[in-house]
Write a protein that binds this DNA or RNA. Structure first.
Lengths: 325, 325
DNA sequence: CTGAAAGCGCTAACAA
DNA sequence: TTGTTAGCGCTTTCAG
């Protein structure tokens, strides 16, 4: 920039003003500066700019996996963009150590705010960062040990809607296949399911199968266990998209498949079974809210931590209406 | 940092040395500095560090979409990580304007190198950046107007393998459904297919259907056109994962479906048809090579632009062996 | 309206 | 081994 100033025969400040489109510069100077910029191939260094200005106009996102379908992240990017914020994302691979590493790196990076899909069991390591004024929002899963804003869908209601729908269609033995219960959503949904069964006056014995959601063997075994018993289930609720897909893949060749309601409205699952009834999250709302909370907190870091519950909705397409047999 | 120095009663340089784990510091000073750091909740500003040091240890990635399956980006992240490089990614949404915007933003960001899945028709806007010494590598698609390193799979061989496989199993009327030909891979693969047909002594009339790959209508129409004619095709090659999925979804209920060979080994497609024969890219190799090329170019910016063609492989699972009828 | 100078937080070269 | 100092490239007072 100093070279540009020299070449244009102006002061450093003037170049800066031109680059930042300050209207208070004589037009012939603007021209001279722009010529010098073009001639020297000058481009401004964003780091130096941010260092000086204190804000970056950039949000950091640490999610389970970039290169993995994630409608929330999609919405986050869209909304951020419409607010002139750039989103730079990296993967945690759902690995505690890696998550801490990349999140800490992002903390030092000087982003205006961080959007995190939490993996770690506890997030005490973020306490100093939050105290230092960094804006952080968690989505989908809850963070323990750090008071940050949360955007989480109504897992409990989702399961209740699915359960009630199946009961309404005559099912009384309903099974559940879900993710690991050490993961927030896996735990929430499994517990919600248990409550539904209890309230309905039944026993959960043999009805709740949780574990790795990308393990076909495990899902197959769960289905076998629930269908080959003396009182087999007539319907199954699947706790997330992966469980749903594995279940549908397994059930495809089955003659008398149980009714199915899945949690999460997933493209792939719909390909497998176009009439799949699902509990759909409003991913758009989750993403939008996450960015909004972040912007509010950036504007006022003193805000008390908030927790927004986003709606879920039962989308009835047919697979839940299969009568018990 | 200056506060830490004061609190610890040491010089600025010593704090820097401690923070950077320089071994040449008396241990009692290390301790005092670390105490001060803890007490003050100090954390180093990465921007200032990078500004001063000149390197960032970070790679920028501009891809079609984070939050979209992308095995190459997955590999890129893995390999980069194993080389102590962080990857920060953002989406271009396959939109020319947006691509230019985010890529330019990344250029100014001071990343050590950029990995781009190109969208724009031309990339002349990158010429000054490259001249300024920025390391850039393109993957999957070719960049026009800017001389950068490329990693691209052997599209032509892939189509040839698929074609030959079908011919070997008795097919003589083979159709092709692929992506827009304005997109590099769409064009390359369609042309390779045309060459195959010509070499085989046939006419391509009515056999090549290219267009939007996520438009079910279009794919359905293409299939209708190719199966309801006087000499219907007995086999179809699909030009990318999306085309394959749409095709399989459409063909699912068909009594006498044609043989299918797909380009790209896609999880979802396999769910739809477990015996799907595909041309598989070595995404791992693409990602690994991209990072390697970038590292080499960072080390020596004077390198001539290179172009690496990564291998493809026919994975025979059965769907290509369906006899013509 | 423009230029000069200070300083964002850090590292590296130089002295001590 | 340690402290001091000079920038990295930029924005932003503050004079003029």
């Amino acid at each position: 920039m100093v070279d540009v100033a020299r070449a244009a025969g102006v002061g450093l400040g003037t170049v800066s003003r031109v680059v930042n489109e300050d209207p208070n510069v004589r037009s012939y100077l603007v021209e001279r500066v722009n010529e010098a910029i073009a001639a020297l191939g000058y481009r401004r260094d964003e780091r130096a700019r941010q260092l000086r200005r204190g804000v970056s106009g950039t949000l950091g996102a640490a999610v389970r996996g970039i290169s993995r379908a994630n409608p929330v992240l999609r919405a986050v990017e869209r909304v951020a963009r419409s607010n002139d914020l750039m989103v730079l994302a990296t993967s945690t691979e759902d690995d505690e150590r890696l998550e801490k590493e990349v999140v800490m790196a992002m903390c030092r990076q000087g982003f205006d705010g961080l959007i995190i899909e939490p993996t770690a069991a506890r997030h005490d390591y973020l306490v100093p960062e939050i105290r230092a004024g960094l804006a952080i929002v968690a989505f989908d899963r809850q963070m323990r040990g750090a008071k940050v804003d949360h955007v989480i869908c109504d897992n409990r209601l989702g399961i209740e809607l699915a359960f009630r729908h199946l009961v309404d269609h005559g099912h009384s033995r309903i099974g559940y296949i879900g993710d690991f219960e050490r993961i927030f959503t896996g735990r929430e949904r499994a517990n919600a399911f248990r409550r539904c069964v209890a309230r309905h006056g039944g026993s959960v014995d043999g009805l709740v199968h949780t574990g790795g959601d990308s393990d076909p063997e495990r899902i197959g075994a769960a289905l076998d266990a629930m269908t080959s018993k003396r009182w087999p289930v007539t319907a199954v609720i699947t706790g997330n998209a992966n469980c749903t897909i594995q279940t549908l893949a397994r059930l495809r060749s089955e003659a008398h498949a149980p009714a199915v309601v899945g949690f999460d409205d997933d493209e792939t699952a719909l390909l497998l079974r176009p009439d799949l009834t699902v509990v759909a999250q409003d991913s758009e709302a989750v993403g939008r809210t996450a960015v909004e909370l972040l912007r509010e907190r950036i504007a006022d870091p003193g805000l008390a931590p908030r927790r927004v519950t986003t709606p879920v909705q039962l989308i009835v397409r047919g697979s839940g209406k299969l009568p018990p047999r």
